[in-house]
Amino acid sequence: MSAREGSAAPHLRLISARIGHRPDQPLFPPLDFELWPGEWLVVAGPNGAGKSSFVQSLVGALPLLGGRREVLTPGLRFGYVPQRQAFDPIWPLSTLDVVRMGGAPWLPPFRRSASLDARAREVLEQVGLGGLADAPFRSLSGGQRQRALVARALVGGPQVLVLDEPANHLDLPGERALVDLVADLRARTGAAVVWISHRLEALARRADRIAFVRAGSFRMGSLAELRSDGTLEGFLDRGEAS
C-alpha cells in the first residue's frame, strides 16, 4: 500500500499555483499538487529548470505569484537540507550546535530545551556522527557535514523532510549511501521526503512519485509512467535505474 493510499488527507495542497520570482514570468503553467504523508517525492530536472523554486513555494518560503497554498496538517513541520555545504568558517559552532538549530523554529521565546539537546544527540547517533557531537562543525568532511545537516533537518520532528540537491558534492556511491540513510530515517520517522535532484540514478527506485521539471513544463507521475510517456527520455540513465 502506498503512503497516499494509507492517508486520509494530504499534508498540503497547491491549487492553480503560479510559481516564480517575477509576476510576469511564472516558471510553469498553473499547478495543482498535493503532498501526502510518508510519500517519497523526487523533484527532478536539469539545472536551472525551477526545481528549487517549486520546493520553496511548497514549504512557503517563496510566496506564490497566484493561486493558493493550503496546509491541511495543523502545525506542519518541515525539515530542510540545503544544497550548499560551504558555511562561513568563522562561526564558533560544534556539530551539536548546528544540529540544535533545527529545533529553533519551534522553540518558544525565552525557552531553552534540555530535551532538544538529548534529541540532537540521538539524531546525531542515527546519522552516524555520535562521536563528533562536540567537534567543530567547520572541521567535518563534506560527507559528515551533509549528515549533520540531515540531522539538523530531523531534530524538530518534521512531517516533511526536504533535501535540495544534497548529493551535489558527492560521488555516486556517496549519494547512494545518503539515499540509504534517508530511507532508513524515513522508515523510522514516517516523514514524507521531497528530494530535489538533477540526476535520478540513485533515487528513481525509491521514489513514489517523480515531479519532472524542464523548460517551462511540469510533469508528475511514477517512474514507469514518466518513462512510458517519454518524459524522462535523454535524462535517465536506464542502466542505473532499471
Binding site: Q56, G60, M101, A104, R152
Partner: peptide
C-alpha cells in the same frame, strides 16, 4: 537560537519556518 540559525544559514531557516 533563531538569531543564530537565521544568521548562519538563512536559506534553511527560512525553509523551516
Amino acid at each position: 537560537p533563531r538569531l543564530v540559525f537565521a544568521s548562519f544559514d538563512p536559506e534553511a531557516a527560512r525553509a523551516m519556518g
